[in-house]
Write a protein that binds this DNA or RNA. Sequence first.
DNA 1: ATTTTATGTCAGCCATATTGACTTATATTG
DNA 2: CAATATAAGTCAATATGGCTGACATAAAAT
Lengths: 166, 166
Amino acid sequence: MADIKSPSAADLAGEELVRQGIELLFFAYRDFTAEPDRILDEYGFGRAHHRVVHFVGRYPHMTVGELLEILRITKQSLNRVLGQLVRQGFIIQHRGLQDRRQRLLELTERGHQLERLLSAPQRARVGAAFKKAGAPAVEGFRKVLLGIIESEEDRRRFEHPPPTRR
Amino acid sequence: MADIKSPSAADLAGEELVRQGIELLFFAYRDFTAEPDRILDEYGFGRAHHRVVHFVGRYPHMTVGELLEILRITKQSLNRVLGQLVRQGFIIQHRGLQDRRQRLLELTERGHQLERLLSAPQRARVGAAFKKAGAPAVEGFRKVLLGIIESEEDRRRFEHPPPTRR
DNA sequence: ATTTTATGTCAGCCATATTGACTTATATTG
DNA sequence: CAATATAAGTCAATATGGCTGACATAAAAT
């Protein structure tokens, strides 16, 4: 009965569903980054600055090395961006207490303001999408995205209702 | 009882959930693009080439203008990438029948091979995440991402089980 | 016949990434 | 303690992929 060469109807549906998932990620990411990108432009900053401000804001006292691991860029690339943010007073660095080679990163008040400004449209967009989709859908969204993330270490960031800050 | 100035517990949970959603998108997108990026390197191509190959593969006979709208880049940027793909035999262009100004785009067999090669790790990754998360979670993932996408026109691409090709 | 649209092209600029080599300060280890 | 390894910073050169602006061509629409 079944054609041994061609994919089953279920496989075709699965394949199509997966391809739609891939495309959904592209469109969602495109629109999710568009608004902050416009704001960044006004500061002469790029998306890289946003990423740094986001992660330093969320994980205060992060080291340069940890940031490099998360962003998966070279330290030369990071340093240009990070240096600008430090020189312009968005981020302060202080030496690690146990390991004085480390530079622990932290947002200044100005940095927090920028973070809130940049994340505002994203929070609005994602918040509205969550509200509209409903809690079970949000749970599904989280499950699938966690499944897409490669490293266990990165996934662990989402296990516990993360650090409340401010 | 309730402090009129500070956010409610529900708002805090919502805010934290949304911030996690934002971060999940970053990590998932980072890992979702990492593998094709490595393959593209071997061809001397970049992520832009992948996007073109993806959309031309998925929506054959797409015009240059439609591609520009989807990718939200300038025609000068597109043309460099598209020109390389055409010159190297991954894409063919033919004039529109009704409107002869249009250049309808299509993958060659070589283009289809490249598309499959590039999308293979993404299909594997997203497919595995879908399977592990289960059908209801996938439905939630779709709902939320659709809610994040700005334009009705883009969302409509996901209404009907899209064009089966090949 | 004129204007608008779809596409392509030239030139130059900028942001972000890369590799490789090297430095400094501090920690770790034999 | 001396040697080595690690965290971070820096210099230089290069590539990619965006951008703007100006202009060209062909075909469609008015």
